[in-house]
Design a protein around this nucleic acid. Structure first.
Lengths: 185, 185
DNA sequence: AATCTAATTCGATACTCATCGAAATAAATA
DNA sequence: TATTTATTTCGATGAGTATCGAATTAGATT
């Protein structure tokens, strides 16, 4: 889950909270002492400490009048080691739509009737459009050149270019020398 | 300097920027592709990338039409290892006034004429006040009990308590059995 | 039990920043 | 050279948050 990582980094992206960590790395302090050292009000320090506590970096221990906070060095060590682990990197990406770019490109090039406005000149966009067009062919089924043209006509008048690009990009296959076309399963 | 650390953490405390890092960990992407994948506008992605670039985590490489961004894995590795190093922890604390707490406590207990309102009951505050009072004694010089009382009278009528606490806390020394008092250098 | 004291919570304010759209830039193709 | 396209910059807006002071809570001392 990515939210947890964000929360962790947010907890550390404040100068005063970093100072608190630096101070607690030396020895435990009460809220009052931290407030005096940082020239902040106790309520503000309490706010900071609660954020640090929420991510498990500090913890409190009651000592007579005071609430003494201490740094959890174990957690610090553990976190810093795993921050950019393969798991965390992968986890941050789980909810991105891998086809979003293709979809956007195709949408930009498609008319309302499903035909192509133009055939993209740029490689990346052409590929995205080709992948879309290829869906009109059933995987594994073989088509004659005439049948291929019939289908491609729905997308653009220049069926020859489409056909050539489909084969050239490897999205569709062609049996050597004027044979049939097909899309791999 | 602590500002650099804060900037680094801030660069990472945004869900979309973490997603960008996760994506770039797989392969380089252009701004446009990232925008589509994250469902953001290109200007927003550009903003995010500039923040990541500022802390050295990503860099751009021009590729025909596109500006392809890539993750600097070396920098990532390096940074993550040194984030909570002793140097960084210490650096975050350099500009805090170590005496701020003592000063605040003393200020709270001092009248305008320099005398004590009361003698603090709490250990921590008593210590702070004692450290202040002790400054009235020249380090190394020896004082008779009478002289000590004369000086302590300026702070509080209960000179016996002050004297006892000064010795008990170890701030002042006393030669065994009714001898002289002194403060270590 | 009554009283202090430190800590936390709450409401308000000011500032930072993510996001967008529009305008300006840069780079490559035609 | 003119035009297209991706990117960056700029200004505005809305959401988030650091900070404070006041009120409340929690604990300990008397």
């Amino acid at each position: 889950m990515s939210e947890e990582l964000v929360t962790f980094f947010k907890a550390l992206s404040d100068a005063n909270r970093l100072k608190i960590i630096g101070l607690l790395a030396q020895k435990p302090y009460s809220v009052e002492e931290l407030a005096a050292l940082l020239d902040l009000k106790a309520s503000t320090v309490s706010h900071h400490l609660s954020k640090l506590a929420k991510v498990g970096l500090v913890s409190a221990r009651a000592d007579s009048y005071y609430n003494v906070y201490q740094l959890d060095e174990k957690a610090l060590e553990l976190k810093s080691r795993s921050l950019f682990s393969q798991e965390n990197l992968a986890a941050s990406v789980v909810d991105v739509d891998a086809d979003a770019y293709d979809n956007k490109v195709v949408k930009d090039y498609l008319r309302k009737d499903g035909g192509l406005k133009t055939i993209p000149a740029q490689r990346k966009k052409l590929d995205a459009v080709l992948r879309h067009v290829a869906k009109a062919f059933k995987p594994g089924k073989r088509y004659s050149e005439k049948q291929v043209n019939e289908i491609l006509k729905n997308y653009h008048a220049d069926t020859a270019s489409l056909r050539r690009e489909l084969v050239g990009s490897g999205i569709m296959k062609r049996e050597g020398g004027g044979g049939d076309y097909w899309r791999e399963e």
